[in-house]
C-alpha cells in the first residue's frame, strides 16, 4: 500500500478519531489546531482554531456535527464541525486530557489532570441540543485516584465510565452514583502507566496499551483480562480492526530517547496482532518517530497513524491484507 502523508501539524500528534461513517478523520496534536481531513484522499477540510495549548484528545458526535476537544490550556471546547466555529468552552482549573461523547451524545465526559493540589478528575457534562443553552455545570464529578487519567470512555448504555491512567489500574465507575465499581487486578494487570484505551465497535471489550510494553484486552462488563499482546517497545496507541480480528499497537521508545538511537532501532511501526491467537501478523513502517495515535476506519479498510514526527499516515489496505492467514 502507498500511504497518504498528511503534514498539517507542526508538533507531535496526540490523537486520531474517525467519524461514524468513516469519511472524516479528526487529528489532534500538540500544536493548538485540531484538524479535520477527508479520510479517503487525505484532503484537509479545515482546522479548528481557538485552543491555546496542546490538544490531547477529541470526539465527534454521531451525526458528525459537533466536535469536542480537550486541551492543555485547561479548557474543553465544543465545535461546529462544518464551520469550525467554537460553540462552547468548558473551563477547568487543570489541563483537560480525555474527552468522550456518551451514547446518544447527550453527555460528555472530560478528564482533567492532577495540577497543583488538585487531583485528577472525570467531569460529566450535559451537552445541550442547542449550543445556546449549553452550560458548564458538571452533572457528576469523579475525583480520580493518584496520577493522571490518560483515557476515559463511556461503558455500555452510559451506565459506567472506564478509566485508565498513570497508576496502571483500569477502573470502572458507576455513572449514577459515582462510585467505583471495579478495579483491575494489579497482579495480572499492567505494571506501568497505561497510555491508551480503545473500545471495540460493539463496546463489549476494550484494549489498553501501556508503557510496560504490552497491550491487554479486557471484558467491559466483568473487567476480566482476556488477552495480552507483548511487544518490544512501550505502547502509545492501540486500535482494533472492526472488520477482522486484528489489533494494532503503535509505539516506539520515549520521545526523549529518539535522537540518541538509530531510527531502525526505534521500532516506529504499527504492529498488527491477531486478536485471538495473540500472534504478530506484521508491521507497517514509515514514521520517523514513535506512533502516538492510531485509529481504524469504521469500515475496517483503512487505518491511520499519527506520530511524534507530526505526520498523519493514512493507509488504505491492499486487497491481500484481507486474506492473511496465520
Amino acid at each position: 500500500m502507498r500511504p497518504i502523508l498528511m503534514k498539517g501539524h507542526e508538533r507531535p500528534l496526540t490523537f486520531l478519531k474517525y467519524n461514524r461513517e468513516g469519511d472524516l478523520l479528526f487529528s489532534c496534536a500538540k500544536d493548538h489546531n485540531p484538524t479535520v481531513w477527508f479520510a479517503d484522499n487525505g484532503e484537509r477540510l479545515g482546522t479548528f482554531r481557538g485552543h491555546n495549548g496542546a490538544v490531547w484528545s477529541c470526539d465527534v458526535s454521531r451525526d458528525s456535527l459537533q466536535l469536542i476537544t480537550g486541551s492543555a490550556d485547561q479548557t474543553a471546547k465544543l465545535w461546529n464541525v462544518k464551520s469550525g466555529n467554537q460553540l462552547y468552552t468548558f473551563n477547568f482549573d487543570s489541563p483537560a486530557r480525555s474527552v468522550d461523547f456518551s451514547v446518544g451524545d447527550k453527555l460528555a465526559l472530560i478528564t482533567t489532570d492532577p495540577f497543583m493540589e488538585l487531583s485528577s478528575a472525570i467531569h460529566v457534562k450535559r451537552i445541550a441540543r442547542d449550543p445556546a443553552d449549553q452550560s458548564g455545570k458538571s452533572v457528576l464529578v469523579l475525583k480520580g485516584p493518584q496520577g493522571r487519567i490518560n483515557r476515559a470512555v463511556w461503558g455500555p448504555l452510559n451506565k459506567t465510565i472506564i478509566s485508565a491512567g498513570e497508576d496502571a489500574v483500569v477502573r470502572i465507575w458507576d455513572t449514577e452514583t459515582g462510585t467505583l465499581l471495579k478495579e483491575s487486578d494489579r497482579e495480572i494487570g499492567h505494571k506501568r502507566p497505561i497510555t491508551s484505551l480503545t473500545k471495540s465497535t460493539d463496546g463489549s471489550h476494550f484494549i489498553t496499551g501501556s508503557v510496560d510494553k504490552s497491550a491487554k484486552l479486557w471484558d467491559t462488563r466483568s473487567l476480566t483480562l482476556i488477552k495480552t499482546y507483548v511487544t518490544e517497545r512501550p505502547v502509545n496507541a492501540v486500535a482494533m480492526s472492526p472488520l477482522l480480528d486484528h489489533v494494532v499497537l503503535g509505539g516506539g521508545q520515549d520521545a526523549s530517547a529518539v535522537t540518541t538511537t538509530d531510527h531502525r532501532a526505534g521500532k516506529f511501526e504499527a504492529k498488527f496482532y491477531d486478536k485471538i491467537l495473540q500472534e504478530e501478523i506484521g508491521g507497517v513502517k514509515g514514521h520517523f518517530g514513535p506512533i502516538n495515535a492510531l485509529a481504524f476506519n469504521p469500515d475496517g479498510k483503512s487505518f491511520s497513524s499519527g506520530g511524534e514526527d507530526g505526520y498523519v499516515r493514512l493507509h488504505h489496505f491492499d486487497p491481500d491484507y484481507f486474506n492473511i492467514k496465520i
Binding site: G42, R44, L45, V284
Partner: peptide, 29 residues
C-alpha cells in the same frame, strides 16, 4: 462543505497531503 480555518488559504503548492512514494508493505515478523 466549504473549507474553513487554515485550510481556506491552502494553495496548490502547499503539498500538505502527499501520497507516499514508497511502497509500504505489511511486513511479516
Amino acid at each position: 462543505w466549504p473549507k474553513f480555518g487554515d485550510a481556506v488559504h491552502e494553495d496548490v503548492g502547499s503539498r500538505l497531503t502527499m501520497v507516499s512514494t514508497e511502497e509500504i508493505v505489511l511486513e511479516p515478523p
